[in-house]
Design a binder for these strands. Structure first.
Lengths: 218, 218, 218, 218
DNA sequence: GATGAATGAGATTTCATTCAT
DNA sequence: CATGAATGAAATCTCATTCAT
């Protein structure tokens, strides 16, 4: 596994035009990796299911390892910029959005994004948990990227008095625990195809009440 | 992977006396499965690290598969009876325990149990997430066992008016999300060796406030 | 490997005009075959280094085998006519040239030719030694071509009394051993870029003294 | 290819008892590598000819690379100590041995050793010439080991006046050229099974006369 | 109970070659 | 003339499992 995932993430050009076979190949890889895990999926099976020769995999990606990265990295690359931009635009457009509404938007937005990319999400989570090397590569990336845009927002809500007065880092950890636990349990354990609004609302209420500043008067 | 895990769980006798080599073997298997995952750990490596012949593994366990089960099942067997008994005894002994205290006790108790069995816990979580077969076997077992003792307790708290009036199943799901997310993120992602009291308390407050019945007067 | 190398050598027309890409292709093949040997060089690598498509190799040469021959044969074709002609012209022009001077000329001339064609020479030697088929094809060719012009010359020197009175064939073998050993060790083992005059002179002296007719009076 | 061949040569224990299959395996590998070269011999073929499973090769040697080393290194390890000891003992036992006799002994001795180990010798020479990595590893080893015992001897002969007065290093190079060229051409090109005494004697005479001190009176 | 030599099925990888464009 | 996507056969390598001792 490469030592320079950051560089790879930034350098890789995923826009190269793909032939039909290459499309089928990558889609099949995602599907099978999501279902059975990277380690339990052979390149022979991928090739067979995709209706492609095994040679093509290695022509294109060199190693099975790099095929995995080629599945994961574009997803990661998309994951965060999108978050930052979309979310922040919502917040800025409506200066007076409540924390509750912000949280609801965030959850709905992320739940949508992830159900739309359910399989890749499963691959990423499974491999980050399963594969030490990949964990070492990706986790630091997550934990520097995510706070980058969330801390600002959280601090605004604290200033407005809506949020409990705890260090932002601790609030962030709680949010991560709940939202992460929510998405992972629904998508990986229960394998929901869609996440019911009701469940989202329950979690929103749980967090909003759990993190509310009790002195705050609306 | 066997089709009859329930039977196996109930039938297996894990108390059989083990020689020193057998001890080292099983400990090494747990350690390596936890670190690198079952699929990425070869029996050759286990044998070598344990200082034992590869033959012994198959003399003892027949297949690599059953070695994994022999690691997982005793843990599972312990996990729930212990919960039910210990927890309930706390609750019964003190009839007037608050939901907050109950939750704190529950979290502290489970966090302790899991940090004490960190590696096996990692193996179980990793493999349940990673391995379709094992997931199919184990998840139903979880989701019938856990509610068995939790629903009673939760309903008591609802009756007493401490808990928000939602269907117990929805409360249970939220609890599972938060507690599961908490333990998994700390033990698998961050690989904490101990879980700070402060973090436990933050989660307790989050949940207590999040699930509080707002009409309730202490 | 073809069974008819002699025919190929005679038939092939290597003078065909080459495009720039074809030039780069053949030069790269020579370079890589010389460095790493034919068997350790893939057509993919040749194409990449030459900045050419892999298809072109097979359009031009049909097989990797014939690419090797196309590298080797023109060199072989040049090697001997040139020798015979150039050398003999020296000898004939100066009827009274001494064996020492003849040997010196021969060595200097061959050392020059080979350093100028160092890479192809490496390819030929490496493959003749390494590849049974090629050895079977090329060696007989060498050992019928070389004596053809050398025996005459050697016998002249024997007649003049300068050379030891041994069967010409044995003298030839010794010459071949020393000259061959000299060129191969310098060009393949030590990878000299140029061969110092001093070393050539040492070898000339060794051979001249070693093969001198002790009764000879200058 | 390992970076630490020196260490490996010194560390390796080749005396470990081999089973019959392991014996057949290594003998077959030597035979096939000698015939067709390392790169042109597949592990499948070795296994088949040796009547052994392919798995055994990789159980025993890990990689095909290390199988090659396991063929080459014990030979190298033997090659030089033997030379130094045997040769020097001849010289010391007879203080008055002539250079001619020394050279004859040396050639006969080495020719014998090499015809007895013809196949491994072929493997070593072929691979040193063919494989850049191996060349880089082994050549320095040769060129520090050989002079170690030869320079002393050569200087003794120079002192006694038998040998031409040239820097020992230059004499050494000539000797190496002639003896190397002789052995390699006979064993690799002509594939002699035994080397005729007559040819050895020719070479001895060539060198003795070629390197004689012309002022020396016997 | 314990070993470790040996296997064979299958996984990954390499690579010469074909072919439609 | 030239490309490069695609192939399939064979090569290297991995690994759970068997078995004689």
């Amino acid at each position: 596994m490469s030592n320079h995932i950051f560089d790879i993430i930034l350098a890789q050009d995923f826009t190269k035009l793909k032939t039909e076979k290459q499309q089928r190949l990558i889609e099949t890889a995602i599907k099978l990796f999501a279902e059975k895990g990277y380690a339990n999926t052979s390149t022979a099976e991928i090739a067979k299911v995709a209706g492609v020769s095994e040679g093509l995999i290695f022509k294109q990606y060199g190693t099975k390892d790099r095929l995995l990265l080629s599945v994961i990295l574009p997803f990661i690359k998309d994951l965060f910029p999108v978050m930052a931009n979309e979310m922040l635009s919502e917040i800025i457009s409506e200066d007076t959005i409540s924390f509750e509404q912000f949280l609801r938007n965030l959850l709905i937005n992320r739940a949508l994004f992830i159900t739309e990319n359910k399989e890749i999400f499963q691959v990423v989570v499974k491999e980050v948990i399963y594969n030490e090397d990949l964990k070492r590569e990706l986790l630091p990336y997550f934990f520097t990227k995510i706070p980058l845009f969330l801390t600002d927002v959280l601090e605004q809500f604290k200033e407005r008095g809506e949020l409990i007065h705890l260090p932002t880092e601790r609030i962030f950890k709680m949010l991560f625990t709940v939202i992460g636990g929510f998405l992972v349990s629904r998508l990986l354990l229960m394998e929901n195809h869609i996440i019911p609004d009701e469940e989202i609302e329950d979690i929103v209420q749980l967090v909003v009440n759990g993190l509310k500043n009790k002195q705050f008067v609306e």
